[in-house]
Design a protein around this nucleic acid. Sequence first.
DNA 1: CATTTCTACTGTATCGTTACAGATTGCATT
DNA 2: AATGCAATCTGTAACGATACAGTAGAAATG
Lengths: 347, 347
Amino acid sequence: MENKGNFGQAASAPTARERPTLKTIAFMTGLGVTTVSRALKDAPDIGAETKERVRMVARQLGYQPNRAGVRLRTGKTNVIALVLSIDEEIMGFSSQMVFGISEVLSGTPYHIVITPHSHSKDPMQPVRYILDTSSADGVIISRIEPDDPRVRLLTERGMPFATHGRTDAGLTHPFHDFDNEAFAHQAVEKLVKRGRRRIALLQPPSKLTYYAHIRIGFQTGLHDYGAEEVPLRVNTDAPLADIRDIVEVMMRSANAPDGIVCSAGSAAIAVNAGIEAAGKALGRDLDMVSKQSVPILNWIRPEIITAQEDVRQAGREMAKAVIARIDGVEPELLQSISQPTWPNSGR
Amino acid sequence: MENKGNFGQAASAPTARERPTLKTIAFMTGLGVTTVSRALKDAPDIGAETKERVRMVARQLGYQPNRAGVRLRTGKTNVIALVLSIDEEIMGFSSQMVFGISEVLSGTPYHIVITPHSHSKDPMQPVRYILDTSSADGVIISRIEPDDPRVRLLTERGMPFATHGRTDAGLTHPFHDFDNEAFAHQAVEKLVKRGRRRIALLQPPSKLTYYAHIRIGFQTGLHDYGAEEVPLRVNTDAPLADIRDIVEVMMRSANAPDGIVCSAGSAAIAVNAGIEAAGKALGRDLDMVSKQSVPILNWIRPEIITAQEDVRQAGREMAKAVIARIDGVEPELLQSISQPTWPNSGR
DNA sequence: CATTTCTACTGTATCGTTACAGATTGCATT
DNA sequence: AATGCAATCTGTAACGATACAGTAGAAATG
């Protein structure tokens, strides 16, 4: 029963305290390298007892497959690339997303690689790089446009990915999104319930898909609850100083709104500054509703009515979706939308 | 001069639109794979004209070395691991650091991999993982303690790294730090120049190295400018609600300070809330100085006197330091300290 | 002219893993 | 006794790059 004549594969020595490889395990178990490899991935043609033995030795040695070896042989990188826009970031938005993603990845062999880019520059560049160098098994992108060229390219090339935000051009792909339409609609409701009727909207840049969602929610809200819009000609991507100045001018004008809906937490800070600069007070002269991804607005002005977008949860969802997509799950099944929660909106 | 009989190495075909490898270039130039490899790394035993020819073809093909191949053969991962603490993060602290790092890395073959961990759990775990699996060429860590076991381990194992913060136990290693001593000293100065004499300090947790720096700067400041300390029994790591409550109690007491120095931007938000809850006003009843890494405090209360810590710059410095260390530069030469800047402190 | 030296290039083996095509054994079937 | 057939196990080649030990030819040396 003893196997003699083990020349080809497992001939060499275990060489002391080096990192263990399949060869080490093969040597220790007296098996061939191939057998060990197949045993560890629970292949059907390996005996149950052998598998058990191999697993024990592997655990004992603290064996971890060499990523470069696997990657070279199979092409599997065990990497998820997170493409981040470097500009927008003021609050801990992307950190939260990173942490959400890594929570999910921590139980898997996947690592997370950050690929940043300036969204004023070519947003295709990082995606192209990842595709050209096959440097990831999956990709996560944000700031999605209705007919996003990155989504097209990734789909076309068969690269698994998930998006934070939806497209709107007949493209089917995994995504996680916040229900911005519901948010805007409910925001108007909150304001009207507080007796506000003349409402301004600080909206996202119009090229992003959720601009439309915000608009629709806002407008149906105005209609449903009988309010009107006070136009505000600036968007959430503008420099904070610009937002403050424009809001201040608006609030000083005869046409000042008595309610503001704000689509981003960092912008809300600037809006608030504009309001105060105009000598108005939240809760008295007007109310403001804002979305936020980090619970910070309430610390600044408790009067701001906030809807929470759980970005960490978004990270988790997208990580799960990408991995599922890598495992061949259909994109249709990997789409989710999270609802706004209103931690402090006393009815 | 034409080379015939090219059997062993460059025999196989270029196979159409696949990703180019050394073999592709070898085939196209009629050279051996080894020659191409050496030509691309500018080895001295390759002819000048040949090098030029190889480089042209490589550029033409858009050749990028296969990372798995390099890594398997040489052990070089071309990865910098950023170990991030997942808990502390409220503001965009770590995002800024990530972006600073990637700014530097973008001109290099290095990728940045995020390795998060909860600092309530074992902080050695991610470092051990990186060492055991040799999964990076360099490491960046933060939240440094005076005798940090991670620094010891990384040094002992010869893994290049840089820290955000210093140690204080005779360990020599690359670091970038903010001059917290200068900050605290100058903070006291600012307060005293505004006529404040009874000053509280919201300090970092005492196990971190910069606790001592803050304390020393604060205390020499008190001494130099003739002020006294009002004790505050909470640190910047505490939940924001706790900070607010404790500050509120302090501000309502007979012993309330007329100045506060705050060592972290997010905590300052809670401190401000506590002050307001106690019915006090910044600029009237007291002044506050705070460090911040993202320019947000001034939007909240312009009265807060802020010192800017440029975390993005810290990221850049650390990235440069790690790479230099990988390239063999002595640790002594890779240490830097940045000074606080005071964007809004009217003299 | 023979020998050494130098320049410029090349083949082989190897890193750790896995796909693939066998090989060995025992046992049931004819 | 020969054959077929699972059930297990194994060697070889390959992924792409590079360290190393060459080799061929030209030029310099004696």
